[in-house]
Write a protein that binds this DNA or RNA. Sequence first.
DNA 1: TACAACATACGAAGTTTTTCGTAGAAATAC
DNA 2: GTATTTCTACGAAAAACTTCGTATGTTGTA
Lengths: 134, 134
Amino acid sequence: MKKLSKPTDSELEILQILWENSPRTVREVNEILNKKRETGYTTTLKFMQIMFEKGLVSREKSGKTHFYTAEVQEQDIQQALLDRFIDRVFKGSASKLMMQALGRKQASPEELKEMQEILKNLEDENKDKSDGSN
Amino acid sequence: MKKLSKPTDSELEILQILWENSPRTVREVNEILNKKRETGYTTTLKFMQIMFEKGLVSREKSGKTHFYTAEVQEQDIQQALLDRFIDRVFKGSASKLMMQALGRKQASPEELKEMQEILKNLEDENKDKSDGSN
DNA sequence: TACAACATACGAAGTTTTTCGTAGAAATAC
DNA sequence: GTATTTCTACGAAAAACTTCGTATGTTGTA
């Protein structure tokens, strides 16, 4: 069982880009990154080299250029980061997190509605199960 | 409008302790910290001095000893950290966060049930409002 | 008073993460 | 071929965060 080294903030930014569309070159990633905030080409290159060493991404050479692909699953990373976040910020209480998420100012009405639907579905599922075991 | 400087991991650990019970001395905080992981007294002291400079905590002198109190609200910090977390990890989608939170392995049945109740209450609230405005 | 116990202040070293400059190899253009 | 552009590799500086040693001051006690 391999432990997945959790990405730093900068590494996560790059992973997000690779998850969206792979494979990508350093230049492409750097250009996308630069839409949000200025960052040098060699800076991005360095990160991607580090990520390669860590096994977060793989790469393939074509001519002189490397094409990078994410080697970790988005959901796995989200899960790991979320678990840690809940522990750190909400002392392990996922329900406290949820309350805060539901109440947050930045949430759009669509998001709120969506969240409610998710929960509703979950309730229905549980009703189905509730006559059998336990 | 004051910008609240977001705490680092270590600062957050200390804030958690102060939120639980204030005011506290450096020694008390350090002892509580040491239940989880070993950390030197002057290390804790240094953090609390930095936090004082940042305005995260206030302190009052009694004799030679300082008594510290959190100066930021737990909910405010949680909100700020959560917003940032959702942006970074879930690209701004709170509902994706919620799905992941609901499905996580570490969630206990009690937590799940609690989460469902929260959502139920929210739905009921929205029903109350739904005849009037909007 | 002198000593022990315990508190603060502060500098600085150690780590981790981020950023970038420079050198040199590979592809492309002229 | 030679110059220009574009890529990688790498070292190291810069920045952010963590950790701790040491100096010094205050309180209490024998």
